[in-house]
């Protein structure tokens, strides 16, 4: 078990199952016939990758989709944190907005698409709105919970030292809520990424990994679809890993769980 602590060993272990799956995939592809249509041989996928990379399309797609996801994430998550704080701090805001928030949250994101299409069209604004909403929901909820459930033991100390409301928020409530806020943000990242690909698939047009998938489907280019899927997974994984690092740094004051 000790070997798992070694970074190289850990990476090797993490790659084990993907490599096995790829081998299985290749085996299926070599069966030939109808199978080969669904299970494109790895060599063709590699060729499609080389083609997309050389034309620059892959980079454009990756950059477009990532920046779209991050823009929506930043907008949605900041709005979410702000609203979560306001709802957590002020009962009136909670009473005013809470029920509406919980009702709207029940509607699946893509359910809004037709309506949003009518309001703002099918362009960039519509995509950002959906991605932003995806990031917004979990951030509001977690921030609110974190603020509302501030521990009395901590707020008492703030009161003792004569903290104003703003000081209490900055030095006691927000740091106390940070673990939950970060949980909300990590959900927001995952949801925003899924929502970005989803809107690109559905609203097509323009650059983006989802748009490329959608186009490739129409052209029956299974190899291109698979390249786009692989890149989507890779970027999503990278975003998550980077955020996990940031989270670990921000929560370095917590006792290690292990």
């Amino acid at each position: 078990m000790r070997a798992h602590r070694h970074p190289a060993a850990r990476v090797a272990l993490g790659l084990l199952i993907p490599i096995l799956l790829l081998a299985l995939w290749q085996a299926q592809a070599e069966v030939g016939g109808a199978r080969a249509l669904a299970f494109v041989p790895l060599a063709s996928i590699a060729a499609a990758f080389a083609e997309l990379a050389a034309s620059g399309q892959l980079l454009t797609d990756a950059v477009t989709t990532t920046s779209r996801a991050l823009t929506g994430l930043v907008l949605g998550a900041s709005a979410g944190v702000l609203l979560g704080i306001a709802m957590g701090l002020f009962r009136s805001v909670d009473r005013l907005i809470g029920p509406l928030y919980h009702a709207i949250r029940q509607v699946p994101l893509l359910g809004w698409l037709p309506l949003i299409g009518l309001w703002v069209g099918n362009g960039e604004a519509a995509k950002l709105l959906i991605v932003g909403l995806a990031a917004f929901y979990p951030t509001v909820l977690n921030t609110y919970e974190g603020i509302v459930h501030a521990e009395r033991r901590n707020t008492d100390v703030g009161a003792l030292f004569g903290f104003s409301r703003a000081q209490l928020l900055r030095h006691v409530l927000l740091p106390g809520a940070l673990p939950l806020i970060l949980t909300g943000l990590s959900q927001a990242i995952a949801f925003a990424w899924i929502a970005t690909i989803g809107t690109e698939l559905l609203l097509g047009a323009g650059a983006g990994l989802g748009a490329t998938m959608s186009l490739a489907q129409a052209q029956q280019r299974m190899d291109v679809i698979l390249v786009a899927i692989a890149i989507t997974g890779l970027i999503g994984f990278t975003l998550n890993t980077l955020f996990a690092r940031l989270r670990g740094h921000l929560l370095r004051w917590q006792p290690a769980i292990a």
Binding site: D156, V157, L160, G162, F163, S164, Q167, H171, W253
Partner: peptide, 26 residues
Amino acid sequence: RGLIFQDHRLFPWMTLEENVGLALLN
């Protein structure tokens, strides 16, 4: 007036120095 609680109640997110310093905020 100061109060020392039965449990330490230092803020877990601050270093010892920051905890002590925070008492002087106002």
